[in-house]
Design a protein around this nucleic acid. Structure first.
Lengths: 343, 343
DNA sequence: AGCCGATCTGGGAGCGCTCCCAGGTGTGGC
DNA sequence: GCCACACCTGGGAGCGCTCCCAGATCGGCT
């Protein structure tokens, strides 16, 4: 009683077992690499599965195992900001690769608005995924605290807003990166080193600003008044650069807290007739693969590898998955400086 | 893989029903907005669900409904290429939004290598998703033909390699876009209009090249020798521009088949001392929100909205989901020209 | 009154899988 | 010869949900 041609029914485990002449249990064991299956039975089952084009029903499987094999990657950021932030894009791609490499499926979640918050929480509660990697950079974001109460394992990328301890965090050394950038400028003989800082409602930009300030002081230079805050956008960077030039026409270098803002700064400097790097050296942060080398001149930038960050996060999450009691800690990843023509 | 240790029991539908003092069936009906539930019962059930923090087990639900609520977005392209292609990024984000708006979850699939092909097919077969949106631009890509045999509904974004009819396709008017670009240049008085074409193993770049050629002929201009092929990358665009300048130092405009290649062309033109747009006008294709306005000068570009494309694809897929016999056809979306300072 | 259809309810079956347990077979040790 | 102990197998139970069906209730008609 072979399946009729054009039969729409997908074969089930029972079909495979019958075809192979064994029981459902044995077929299951063979397909799942369990112990205690004879080589003969295993081979018959695998052949049957191949012949019938069998693929297990995931819903049925995860109904009983209570595991889905999927991991959520949550990006909590206004949509408009996301559109302007190539770093997040890189995180998404890295997440996909890293999870695929360990046989997991990535499920992407954008959580912008307040109403998304409850949707996100419900989704993560709903048993769709086994765990989550969460990026929620904004200090006022209520998401991290809400997620903390959930039963599923979570690893944060960057500081978790409003939470000091008790969570797993993988962050970059933002302050150290800023230090690298400024030291590079100092070593090149620059003395009037300004900065365009990122939004001070996020810890990464805060740390970068702090690194800039401390390094200047260590070098015996005066940071006073040489900082301008912007919003990580191109236009914001351009405006901040105008403001800096107006206040300090004699500046000879600028450390910009993101590649995108650096593009805006470049535009302003060019319009003001400043040559780069001759008159003003520019160093930025992110080292985005698409943007930084594409500029004119190519940007010197603090390199942080999203793949590396996500890799570490996945590793921790997997350990968490079979050992709930893993002691939470903060991991800080090192950054480096990619030197190009802008400095 | 049993339940994790220390896992608190999640409430089931049965719990909610008991708490509300009704049967499991009635609770199910109330939560699913079925007809034939009294207002009183419905309210008791909803209150109980809220109080207990109930969220339905998706695995159990889709085991019986044979629907997962998830839609795959498949991007078939080498990883390295993806990294350089901001348009794909925009597609991903648009896919998420459009699917979320209709209550579906996006599951992202990258299908680069040959081994990914069978993994992708197996995944789509595995009942993880209800349907798929597929982007497979390369003519030699075996994926579309393989997917065609599957039982799940599929809509292609752009031409499906090697398939002429019988599939659902949403494409942009690539030839018309090229026509817009070249007409714009002709109207501005340009007479030596070159082009940097994209890879001629994909139909979109082929159509763009054809549009350029036809429009020149229509305007009584000679396209001969004024075309150079490149690979959609920045470096490729820069090299192609060098080649064009070498062969035709007198060219006064160039139509570039992507924003990224246009960035490279800009770089080359600048190095060669050509002023833009005074000496050479530049028009590109894609109008990427991150890239095109960020250039110096900002790029005039043929605008194609990924969101619009994905929106149309989702609409078709949803109709396909409850009407398998929807007649396949090719939808062509119009494009427009975003005029900026480079032309 | 009586009846019929519309409205509402609860229980049973079953989706396809994994796990547990009872039982069967073979091998070696006393 | 018998027991102990591996190895291997099949059937039953049940995960949490939706759907079907039978039955109960309540009008509004004739």
């Amino acid at each position: 009683m072979g399946p009729r041609a054009g039969d729409e029914e997908r074969p089930t485990l029972e079909d495979v077992a019958a075809f192979a002449g064994v029981s459902r249990s044995t077929a299951s064991r063979a397909l799942n690499d369990d112990a205690y299956v004879s080589a003969a039975a295993r081979e018959k089952v695998l052949a049957a599965a191949r012949d019938l084009g069998y693929s297990p029903n995931q819903a049925a499987r995860s109904l009983v195992t209570r595991r889905t094999g999927a991991i959520a990657v949550v990006l909590s950021e206004p949509e408009a900001r996301l559109l302007d932030d190539p770093y997040r894009t890189a995180v998404m791609r890295a997440g996909y690769r890293e999870l695929a490499d360990v046989g997991r499926q990535m499920v992407l979640i954008f959580s912008d608005t307040r109403e998304d918050l409850s949707k996100t929480v419900r989704f993560l509660e709903g048993g769709h995924v086994d765990g989550a990697l969460v990026f929620a950079p904004h200090r006022a974001d209520p998401l991290p605290k809400a997620l903390r109460l959930l039963r599923i394992p979570i690893v944060f990328g960057g500081q978790a807003a409003g939470i000091r301890r008790g969570v797993h965090v993988v962050d970059f050394d933002n302050e150290g990166g800023a230090r690298l950038a400024v030291q590079h400028l100092v070593a090149a003989g620059r003395r009037r080193i300004a900065t365009i800082a990122g939004p001070q409602d996020q810890s990464a930009p805060i740390d970068r600003l702090a690194g800039w300030r401390k390094t200047l002081l260590d070098a015996g230079l005066d940071p006073a008044e040489l900082a301008e805050e912007a919003d990580f956008t191109l236009a914001g960077g351009a405006n901040a650069m105008s403001a800096l030039l107006a206040k300090h026409p004699d500046l000879d270098a600028v450390f910009v807290a993101s590649d995108m803002m650096a593009v805006g700064a470049l535009r302003t400097l060019d319009a003001a007739g400043r040559r780069i790097p001759d008159d003003v050296a520019v160093v930025s942060f992110d080292d985005n693969a698409t943007l930084a080398p594409a500029m004119d001149p190519p940007l010197t930038s603090v390199h942080q590898d999203p793949r590396e960050q996500v890799h570490a996060m996945v590793e921790i999450l997997l350990r968490l998955l079979d050992d709930q009691d893993l002691k939470p800690r903060q991991h800080v990843l090192p950054v480096s400086l990619a030197v190009r023509a802008s400095s």
